[in-house]
Simulated scan of single mutants.
Amino acid sequence: MKNVFLAFAFLCSSFIIAQEGTNMKKVITPPEKVKFAFEKEYPGKVPVWSEEYVGDDADEVRFEARYNVTNTTKAVAIYDNLGNMKAYELQITFSQLPPKAQAYLKKNYAPKAIKEIAMVVDDKNKTTYEVGVTKDTKFYDVVFDKDGGFDVSIEKN
C-alpha cells in the first residue's frame, strides 16, 4: 500500500510544468547534499527544484528535480533531505511500454485518452509504468508492473 501511495504521490507531482494551473509548486533551492547528489548523477542538467511533504502525517520532505533529458523528453528525480534518491520518473512513448501494457490500454482506452506515460524506478530499484488517461471526463493513473501487467487504476481529482 505504501508503494501505491508513493507511486500515486509521485505521478500526481510529475510533469506539473506541462499541467499549468493550481498545481504549480513553488520553486526552491534544495540543501547542498541534495544538489550535490543530483549534479553527480546528472552532470550538466539544469533542474527546476520543488519540495513536497509526504508520509503518513506529511512529515517527510522530498525534493523534486525536474529537467529535460532531451528537447522532447522530461524527467523527475526525487530525493530525501539527505540526498538519497527516492524515485526517478522518465517520460516515455507508448511504444516503449511493455507489450502487455500496450494491449491493455488499447483494449480499455481510446488512443486520444492517453495523456502522459512514464517509467518510474523507486529507491528499491522497482520499475513500474504509469499512464495518465481520461475516461468519462475523469483523470486516472493506470499503473503497470515491470512486465506490463495491470496493477492499479487511481482516480485523480
Rank of each mutant, 00 (worst) to 15 (best):
M1I: 10
N3Y: 00
F8L: 04
F8I: 01
A9M: 14
A9F: 14
F10N: 14
C12H: 09
E20S: 00
E20I: 05
G21C: 03
G21E: 07
N23Q: 10
N23I: 07
N23G: 06
M24Q: 14
K25V: 02
V27R: 03
T29C: 02
P31M: 12
K33W: 01
K33L: 04
V34I: 14
F36M: 02
F36G: 00
F38D: 00
E41R: 06
Y42D: 02
Y42W: 07
P43V: 11
G44E: 02
G44M: 01
K45E: 01
K45N: 06
W49R: 12
E51A: 06
E51K: 06
Y53K: 02
V54Y: 04
G55A: 08
G55F: 09
G55W: 10
D57L: 02
D59Y: 07
E60K: 10
E60N: 04
E60Y: 07
V61E: 08
F63Y: 09
F63P: 01
E64D: 13
R66G: 08
N68F: 05
T70Q: 13
K74E: 00
K74V: 03
K74P: 05
V76E: 00
I78G: 03
I78S: 03
Y79D: 04
Y79V: 11
D80W: 08
D80Y: 07
N81V: 15
N81P: 10
G83S: 14
K86H: 03
K86L: 04
A87W: 00
A87L: 00
A87S: 01
A87N: 01
Y88V: 02
E89K: 15
L90S: 00
Q91V: 03
Q91C: 04
Q91D: 06
F94H: 13
L97A: 08
L97D: 08
L97I: 10
L97N: 07
L97C: 09
P99V: 14
P99K: 15
K100D: 04
K100T: 03
A101F: 07
A101D: 06
A103D: 02
K106S: 04
K106N: 01
K106I: 06
K107G: 11
Y109T: 00
K112N: 13
K112F: 13
A113E: 07
I114N: 01
K115H: 05
I117F: 02
I117K: 04
M119P: 04
M119A: 09
V120A: 07
V121H: 02
V121T: 00
V121A: 00
D122W: 10
D123G: 08
N125W: 07
K126C: 12
T127A: 13
T128G: 12
T128V: 15
Y129H: 13
Y129N: 10
E130G: 13
E130P: 11
T134C: 12
K135T: 13
K135D: 12
D136S: 15
D136E: 13
T137M: 15
T137H: 14
Y140M: 11
F144V: 09
F144M: 10
F144T: 10
D145L: 09
K146A: 15
G148I: 10
G148K: 12
G149S: 14
G149I: 15
V152M: 14
S153V: 10
I154M: 10
I154C: 07
E155G: 05
K156I: 09
K156R: 13
N157T: 01
